[in-house]
Amino acid sequence: MKRIIEIERRAAPGDAPYIQSFIYETEDESATVATALSEINARVPLLDAGGEAAEPIRWESSCLQKKCGACAMVIDGRPALACDTRLSERGEVVRLSPLKKFPVVADLIVDRSKMMEALMTLRVWIEEDGRSHEKINEDVYEAARCIQCGCCLEVCPNFKSGGSFYGMAGMSPMARILSQTKGGALDERRKLYNKYIFEGCGKSLACRNICPAGLDIDRLLARSNAVSLWKRLMRR
């Protein structure tokens, strides 16, 4: 199969982006966008589709098995994981660009630190003893599966990097803490949940089908909302 990999590139954060294409041919039907990027980068010399010398493409990867979130990028207009996107399921031209909701570092690398700082504001940790029980573990497991890739934030109409709404990437890890926390620590986290997640979420669920980890967003939202809503009703 032959694909043209068209990449939105920039060498440094402030630079104006430009488009550069590479031709990638393979017999491997299971080749992914990640395979293409690493094989293109291994070429000596590295030439673009027009035969011009090119700099290595900067992108991040780690597990190559959709378990770590490193390789999230925009592929043909939708956020996805490069290691989870088969070229055989794509058209002749595959368009890659960095996630738009985060500052670009270079080429396909973005700085996702705001997403992780949100977890600090939300106080995503167990204060004393985490509850663990067969009955709640399914929910806890689901919540703790979030790979912090940021794909959900890309499609969310309400999320802005540095804003005060944290989206599903904040909600999922928080859902674990809400299920496993009691007492004063829980009260505090309910308030944070309401402020940074519940109130800003338009419930459009645009994020639902995009999550590469396949998190059961409906279930996590329903549970977390129930935990925090219950508190608001009690206050009245």
Binding site: K67, L119, M120, R123, V124, W125, I126, E127, G130, N137, Y141, A144, R145, C146, P173, R176, I177
Partner: peptide
């Protein structure tokens, strides 16, 4: 074990714990 994602579950818990001390 935690299904077939034990490492991920241990890491999520320890990352959160580390955040507590980061704060």
């Amino acid at each position: 074990y935690a299904k077939s994602s034990t490492g991920k579950m241990l890491m999520s818990a320890l990352i959160d714990e580390c955040r507590k001390y980061e704060a």
